[in-house]
Simulated scan of single mutants.
Amino acid sequence: MSTTFWITIAAAVATYLTRIGGHLVISRFERIHPRVEAGLNAVPAAVLTTLVAPAVLGAGPAEWLALIVAGLVSLRTGLLTMFLTGAAILIAARQFMA
């Protein structure tokens, strides 16, 4: 079998062990300290920031327009509406601003 296949399998196993390992460690505690809980609650926002920030910093006017509109829509509607509106604005802006 190819090297790529084994690398993919190794990455899948490592990802699975990392995810299940965190769950097993936390499940051993009867009570989680409030600071630990606050830190764990901050992880999704931190991960999202690390994914979005580089794209935003290198974005052009179409991306900024879509980001601003999606941000405003998110104040009034749900996640799906925000995503679809942002995607539609981005597609239209790239079409007409290019």
Rank of each mutant, 00 (worst) to 15 (best):
I7C: 01
T8L: 06
I9Q: 03
A10I: 10
A10S: 13
A11R: 11
A11T: 11
A12K: 02
V13A: 00
A14T: 12
T15F: 11
T15H: 03
Y16I: 14
L17V: 14
T18S: 13
T18H: 01
R19N: 09
I20L: 13
G21I: 10
G21M: 04
G22N: 07
G22W: 09
G22T: 05
H23A: 15
L24V: 15
I26T: 12
I26V: 15
I26D: 03
I26K: 08
S27T: 13
S27I: 15
R28W: 13
R28F: 12
R28T: 14
E30G: 15
E30D: 15
R31E: 13
R31C: 13
I32S: 07
I32L: 15
H33A: 06
H33Y: 04
V36K: 12
E37I: 01
E37R: 14
E37V: 02
A38T: 13
A38L: 11
A38M: 13
A38Y: 07
A38E: 08
G39K: 12
G39W: 12
G39C: 10
G39Y: 12
L40D: 08
N41C: 14
A42T: 09
A45L: 07
A46N: 03
A46E: 04
L48R: 02
L51N: 03
V52E: 03
A55Q: 11
A55R: 14
A55N: 07
V56P: 04
V56T: 12
V56Y: 06
L57G: 10
G58V: 09
G58A: 04
A59G: 05
A59D: 02
A59M: 10
A59E: 03
P61N: 11
P61V: 15
P61A: 11
P61S: 06
A62K: 10
A62F: 06
W64M: 10
W64D: 01
L65R: 04
L65H: 03
L67T: 12
L67R: 07
I68S: 01
I68Y: 02
I68A: 08
V69E: 01
V69H: 04
L72A: 05
L72S: 00
V73G: 02
S74F: 07
S74I: 09
R76V: 07
R76W: 01
T77F: 05
T77N: 06
G78Y: 01
L79M: 11
L80D: 00
L80F: 00
L80C: 01
T81N: 01
M82K: 06
F83M: 14
L84P: 02
L84E: 05
L84T: 12
T85Y: 01
T85V: 10
T85R: 02
A87C: 04
A87T: 11
A87H: 03
A88F: 10
A88W: 03
I89W: 01
I89D: 04
I89E: 07
I91H: 02
I91N: 08
I91S: 00
A92E: 09
A93M: 03
A93K: 05
A93W: 00
R94H: 11
F96G: 02
F96D: 08
